[in-house]
Design a protein around this nucleic acid. Structure first.
Length: 286
DNA sequence: AGATCTACCTGGTTGC
DNA sequence: TGCAACCAGGTAGATC
């Protein structure tokens, strides 16, 4: 289930394989895997070169070249954003590059044929993920993009603290809310709250500035370590090379319900918070 | 405003 | 063994 570190890993793994490639054609095998204007994906993408592959929150973004002879056709504002492909992998989405003769797999939803003869597959067993082609004007109509919160790895700690001091919802719900902060999912919410010693169900505005500052430090530590270890692999996740990550070996709470806390030895508790399975230590988290 | 529930979807696991 | 129920996950939208 790709969160920020997994999407970062996939983006950095894909970029060397996609650099300088032109998308020759797009084949849509499942309609619901396309979000936004289908004709944008069908009509604007073929013939473009992939100029960058990167990440924003949990979105994987591919910048595409806009040949200058077409620039005048693009509605204003023309230059706020590039022409992009945005992928949200949700739980089971994967991106792989295969050789030209590779047929679609059982769960392949979209295929991009590339100029060097390889093809980019967007596979997604559960069909929750999507690909969206965005002309510069399309960002205005995409609520999810417009409301996406700041990046946890670049926001200043004082700003991070302010985000959470002003909300009455439970801290875990706030961490998972992409409008508050981008890129955090169930794994890294639980892991960072444990490391900061904060109960997941504690009202956000009742947590001291000091604790919120510590949460930011621990969140960044966990995200950076996970990126170094190429993400966490549980069930479906694989990176762009089909390889598993290693950060799951560092989980202190996620998926460890009933097992002993690695710090105090008490059994870990589980509870639903914000509708999500949440694991924490009643002794270590206050 | 915030909490809770549902929908979306599939395959693996658990329980009878 | 067979089959039903349940679970995981991120986000949107409805309802209280």
């Amino acid at each position: 289930m790709p969160e920020l570190p997994e999407v970062e890993t996939i983006a950095s793994g894909l970029w060397p394989m996609l650099a300088e490639q032109t998308i020759e054609s797009v084949t849509i095998l499942n309609d619901s895997s396309v979000e936004g204007r289908r004709e944008a994906l069908e009509n604007y993408v073929a013939g473009r070169e992939i100029t960058h592959v990167h990440r924003r929150g949990k979105l994987l973004l591919m910048d595409l070249s806009i040949p200058s002879e077409y620039e005048h056709e693009l509605p204003a504002p023309r230059f706020e954003y590039p022409l992009q492909l945005a992928f949200h992998l949700k739980m089971s989405g994967r991106l792989f590059v295969y050789s030209a003769d590779t047929p679609p797999a059982r769960h392949t939803r979209i295929i991009f044929d590339l100029s060097n003869g390889t093809r980019l597959f967007f596979d997604d067993m559960r069909k929750f993920g999507f690909c969206r082609a965005l002309a510069p004007c399309d960002y205005l109509n995409w609520q999810f993009w417009q409301q996406l919160g700041p990046e946890p790895l670049t926001i200043k700690t004082e700003d991070f603290v302010a985000l959470f001091q002003s909300r009455r919802t439970r801290i875990k719900a706030a961490l998972l809310d992409q409008k508050v902060i981008a890129g955090i999912g169930n794994i890294y919410a639980d892991e960072s709250l444990f490391r900061a010693g904060i109960r997941p169900d504690k009202p956000s505005n009742e947590i001291s500035k000091k604790s919120l500052g510590l949460l930011h430090i621990k969140l960044k530590e966990v995200l950076k370590q996970a990126i170094r270890e190429c993400g966490s692999s549980i069930r479906d996740y694989r990176d762009a090379h089909g390889d598993a990550g290693a950060f799951q070996n560092n989980f202190l709470v996620y998926g460890r319900t009933g097992q002993d806390c690695r710090v105090c030895g008490e059994p870990l508790k589980t509870e639903k918070v914000a509708g999500r399975t949440t694991v924490f230590c009643e002794t270590c988290q206050k």
